[in-house]
Write a protein that binds this DNA or RNA. Structure first.
Lengths: 216, 216
DNA sequence: TGCAGCTCGGGCAAATTTCCCAAGCCGGAT
DNA sequence: ATCCGGCTTGGGAAATTTGCCCGAGCTGCA
């Protein structure tokens, strides 16, 4: 990794849209010091490409079909802890950002960012620094005023209720199934939302899905 | 339009992600005959850019904040019926494709397509032909055979609201994006639930995901 | 011309969400 | 032993949303 300064930064691009990859490749390579050494269009291939090319930075869109991008991050980091992964996606929900970082990402940049911001984020990540775009920093800052992390902050009961809820069960069904009062389930529902930072039931479902709690 | 062969094809790029536009621009311009004469990052600016530059083809991503891309299509076509619009998006649901064509699009290409397919679609559209990528043709074909999914009962507005809702947007955000009152969005929310038979927001999100309306 | 369907929103009772609070339980720290 | 903190379980009350009904404007179509 110390040869970065001499040889430039090698990049693995992971995105499920060919033209998008193609475009990124051109934007990055026009920088001179960035070289796209491989591409992958799904989470499963990402690790294989990583192993084969040992890139300095993985630029990865977490909204892909198939295995979640979060799993791809965990996958790569589990076997190559020194991997640098920059998440690059259109999503900007605090829960997702936190989940990505706790899965082992080094940076998080939205597609709304200027190209220059993306490029400098790649360089930062290659240097081993943490990087995120301004909008993400804003969202995290606001979110963190009340603290609360992602799924691992949830207790046993909360996880169970979230799973059933995200699976499509009504409050009454959950209460009946777990032998709780409706009120208690409602309270858990609220608690889970505040703990995860989800502002909407839909965000909750998405969180559960991206964390592998439910399959859709 | 007959000077296309002599001067190449001028293109207006409409997409809300700067790097994505940047990338497309490079991919298209590397073709030699395609020239990106303007860009826009929202539906509102799209018509202004169209009027100012009179491009041969508008390449447009319909999943943008602000006015829906479908409205942008109608907007442009209403005032310039000879405009050629190629929808270029990650979405691939039959309902959306049909809506786009009936709004006046000349072509529909998914981001999963190979760059060469996108480029040739642009050339086809510039010649006044209809164009769509293979996956879209497949989906339309299957759709016309099958009884139709739960989403077929929904109108355009309902689809748009469902997409944003399932994507994690709050009622207020949707109302602001689409310039509707909160009450209207709430009514649509309710209507969508009754039409699709979903008893829970979570079920709605799952439905949207399984129908390909949203990616998780 | 008239019907049908989409879009947009008001109204209002019923339900849910949002917070705040309390109590019992349990594990760990002092 | 005792206390602290976190989990689980629920009550209460205000704020908001939902569920459902309604009407009006518009468009396309017969």
């Amino acid at each position: 990794m110390s040869e970065v300064a001499a040889t430039g930064i090698s990049v693995l691009l992971v995105d499920d849209h060919p033209i998008v990859r193609q475009g990124y490749r051109r934007v990055l390579e026009s920088q001179g010091d960035l070289h796209v050494v491989a591409e992958a269009d799904n989470a499963a291939d990402a690790y294989g490409a990583f192993k084969a090319h040992d890139p300095d930075v993985v630029v990865l869109d977490i909204s892909m079909p198939g295995a979640s991008g979060l799993e791809a991050i965990r996958n790569i980091r589990a076997r190559s802890p020194r991997a640098r992964i920059l998440v690059f996606t259109m999503h900007n929900e605090a829960v997702l950002v936190k989940a990505a970082f706790s899965a082992g990402a080094s940076g998080f940049v939205t597609k709304s960012s200027e190209p220059s911001a993306v490029v400098s984020a790649i360089r930062s990540v290659a240097r081993g620094e943490r990087a995120m775009s301004d909008d993400i920093a804003h969202i995290l800052a606001e979110d963190s005023l009340s603290a609360g992390s992602a799924l691992d902050q949830l207790g046993e009961r909360e996880i169970e209720i979230l799973r059933q809820f995200a699976g499509g069960a009504t409050t009454e069904q959950i209460a009946a199934h777990l032998n709780l009062s409706v009120k208690t389930v409602q309270n858990y529902h609220y608690l889970i939302k505040t703990k995860t930072g989800a502002r909407t039931d839909a965000q909750l479902v998405r969180l559960a899905a991206t964390c592998g709690l439910t399959r859709i």
